[in-house]
Amino acid sequence: MHALRGLDLAVAQGTVCGLLGPNGAGKTTAVRLLTTLLHPDAGSARVAGHDLLREPAAVRRRIGVTGQDTSVDGDLTGRQNLRLFARLHRVRDASARADELLERFGLAEAADRPASGYSGGMRRRLDLAASLVRRPDVLFLDEPTTGLDPASRNRIWDTVRHLTEEGTTVVLTTQYLEEADQLADTIALVDRGRVAHTGSPPELKALIGAYAEVVVTDADVMVKAAGVLDRLTGAEPALDRDRKAVGAVTRDPTLTLPRLVRELDSAGVPLLDASIRPPTLDDVFLRLTGSKELVA
């Protein structure tokens, strides 16, 4: 039984690579291997220019990791947490580096309060700050915004963008496809222990085409609407009986909204709504992995 088999991945410096895939695809195993938390049975990898097998200590000195669970000590203040991490990593002038990160992450006013009293977003920002105390070349983020409110999530996104502008390479796993769409320069769809597809969000979306959807007035005509979409798109339509909606992916550029409405009208399908929209990463994920579930 192999968790990973033939996984091939290259990430350019100063970019964000999003690892997406269904449950059990091998993403977490890949991250644990690349951060030296697991030892591979075979294969090779280089992280920040260092061989993972021959130079694991050098790899650890060049990376930062923010996991799903916060690593900060709730009994310590924000300032004490960052000073502790800086000293553990033998950062020169740990106090100055802690103060710099507290200011950067908007935590200066709460710096001398125990971290146990921080909100979820503040603790997440403190955790991310802790992973940056020694200015890593490669930063691994494992679901960095899970459970955060939109304002806190946007602040993390801005921080990630700023890091890549400074030259940091980011490897991101996330359960939010919108997050991957916003942040990732490239996305690697991992399936059954290998990279099944890779490309920028626009490149991956172009692989599957647009999404046509109609909402009908009566559930009894959904099958008839599905037949029209099947004929026009050549793809198996998906039925959402609660919304009385029928949708299908189309790569036919000649399928316009007026044509879709005319064909449905000719077939005697009464409509409430109709649309043809560009694909989302949700569509890409479901189509290219054949999965109904995303677990990062």
Rank of each mutant, 00 (worst) to 15 (best):
A3M: 02
A3G: 03
R5S: 10
G6N: 11
L7D: 01
L9N: 12
L9V: 09
L9I: 08
V11S: 07
Q13E: 12
G14H: 05
T15N: 01
G18S: 11
G18W: 06
G18P: 02
L20M: 10
N23W: 08
N23D: 11
V31D: 02
V31M: 15
R32V: 00
R32Q: 14
L37N: 06
L37S: 07
L38V: 03
H39R: 15
P40E: 02
D41M: 03
S44L: 02
A45C: 00
V47N: 10
A48G: 01
L53P: 06
L53E: 05
E55P: 03
A57M: 07
V65P: 02
V65I: 05
T66P: 00
G67L: 02
Q68L: 01
D69L: 00
G74Y: 04
G74A: 08
L76C: 12
Q80C: 08
N81S: 10
L82E: 13
R83W: 03
F85M: 13
F85W: 13
F85Y: 15
R87W: 07
R87C: 05
V91A: 08
R92H: 09
A94P: 14
S95V: 11
R97N: 14
A98Q: 09
D99W: 04
D99R: 06
E100A: 14
R104C: 05
L107C: 06
L107F: 08
A110F: 15
A110M: 09
A110R: 15
A111K: 15
A111F: 15
P114C: 09
S119Q: 04
S119L: 08
M122G: 09
R123K: 15
R125I: 05
L128G: 05
S131Y: 04
L132H: 14
V133M: 11
V138Y: 12
L139K: 04
L139W: 04
T146H: 06
G147S: 07
P150C: 03
N154Q: 13
I156Q: 13
W157F: 04
R161P: 08
H162S: 13
H162C: 03
T164G: 06
T164V: 14
E165Y: 01
T169V: 04
V170A: 02
L172H: 10
L177W: 09
Q182Y: 07
D185Y: 01
V190P: 03
E203I: 03
L204S: 05
A206S: 14
G209K: 12
V216L: 04
D220F: 01
M222W: 03
V223T: 15
K224H: 12
V228R: 12
R231D: 15
L232Q: 12
T233Q: 12
A235P: 08
A235D: 10
L239V: 15
R241S: 14
K244W: 14
A248R: 11
T250C: 06
D252N: 13
T254K: 11
R262W: 08
A267C: 06
V269N: 07
P270N: 10
L271D: 05
A274Q: 02
I276H: 12
I276N: 12
P278T: 10
P278F: 04
L286R: 15
L286G: 00
T289M: 04
G290T: 06
S291K: 07
K292S: 12
K292H: 06
L294Y: 08
L294H: 09
